[in-house]
Design a protein around this nucleic acid. Structure first.
Length: 344
DNA sequence: TAGACGTGGCT
DNA sequence: TAGCCAAGTCT
């Protein structure tokens, strides 16, 4: 250890012993031996990990990097292929911005990710967190990552009782004050690992924490109750209808591309009414049969969807029939897969 | 600036 | 079960 402050040093020592293996991660020993992370893989993993668990991301990351090994490959991909590969991971604006960002890196940065925070921050889908994560992890620059883990760790370490989101700027300051100049990339991953495995939201394992002796929240006996958060508004229940039309003979299925903005933006799906009271007509005339009901909860509302099905040769007013052979429910958002499962 | 934006796992 | 929670960003 060189000029690293004591707390950062303790955490890095813990990380060296306890780091978790992930497909996008360069282990600390390899990094110190001179292995340099691939900024493309760091960026891709960080975008996938936004509001998403490591377990959910692993297979998506492997598929994306197998299909598109470099940012230039991704930039050259077809939009619908990328959206289909992202299906099921959620927050689909991330996939749209992923493509925009890849194309901007190729068009404006010679296919090389920029290393400076301010430049990264200008790219689509890269906010304060992801810019800091790429700068720190991919380029070992002393930037401070502040995600939900870091907020929680800082709130507890300093016994901050003011609720989120009000207190976020203060927690950011506290996190910045601890960020070392030495090994900032490993340090960024270490604080997040600490939050993910030791300083967990419920039942933190304080006895195993490298910062146990310095933790004001633990000393005050309030660690597990931090960070405080303002109450969230209740989710309303919304209703809608969705139509699954199949064509007799070849079994083609009626799908439509959703608008680029809004819920499930840019994704393929079965035609439906709006889910906010908007009353759209069926996509074609047919003998519709109610086949069941789908319940799905989005971030801000519960949805109850009546699923109607029909076989018809009629021409659709919207959407287009897709050959059965090229239809894969895996390329649809989860709520659409649920509807499909009622007739499949 | 507060609300929109997915999903699956855990308690 | 119903709610909370996850390596946030955009508008």
């Amino acid at each position: 250890m060189t000029d690293t402050a004591p707390l950062a040093g303790q955490l890095l020592a813990w990380y060296d012993r306890n780091h978790r293996s992930m497909p996008w991660r360069v282990p600390p020993a390899d990094r110190q031996a001179g292995v340099v992370p691939d900024p493309y893989r760091v960026w891709l993993s960080e975008v996938m990990l936004q509001q998403t668990t490591v377990a959910a991301v692993r297979d998506y990351f492997r598929r994306f990097t197998a299909l598109w090994p470099t940012v230039a490959d991704l930039a050259a991909a077809r939009d619908e292929d990328v959206m289909a590969e992202w299906a099921g991971l959620g927050y689909y604006a991330r996939a749209r911005n992923l493509l925009k960002c890849a194309r901007a890196v190729v068009a404006d940065h010679g296919g090389q990710f920029p290393s400076r925070l301010e430049v990264l921050r200008q790219l689509p889908g890269i906010g304060p967190y992801t810019a800091a994560a790429v700068a720190a992890i991919a380029f070992d620059r002393p930037e401070t990552v502040v995600d939900g883990n870091v907020e929680r760790v800082m709130a507890r370490l300093h016994a901050v009782e003011t609720p989120l989101p009000t207190v976020k700027p203060r927690l950011t300051e506290l996190a910045a004050a601890l960020t070392p100049k030495d090994r900032p990339g490993d340090y960024a991953q270490a604080v997040m690992d600490l939050g993910a495995t030791i300083c967990t939201p419920r039942s933190p394992v304080c006895g195993l924490c490298p910062w146990m002796a310095d933790c004001a929240g633990r000393a005050a006996g309030i660690a597990a109750s931090l960070p405080r958060k303002l109450a969230k508004p209740a989710k309303p229940v919304r209703h809608g209808q969705i139509w699954i039309a199949t064509r007799p003979g070849d079994g083609a299925i009626l799908l439509e591309q959703r608008p680029d903005s809004g819920l499930l933006g840019g994704m393929a799906g079965f035609p439906s009414t709006g889910w906010d009271g908007t009353d759209l007509p069926a996509p074609l005339r047919a003998e519709w049969q109610t086949v069941g009901e789908v319940r799905h909860t989005f971030t801000h509302f519960h949805l109850i969807l009546t699923v109607l099905a029909a076989e018809t040769m009629a021409s659709p007013l919207r959407g287009q029939f897709q050959p059965r052979s090229s239809f894969s429910p895996a390329s649809l958002p989860t709520v659409m897969r649920k509807a499909w499962s009622l007739i499949a």
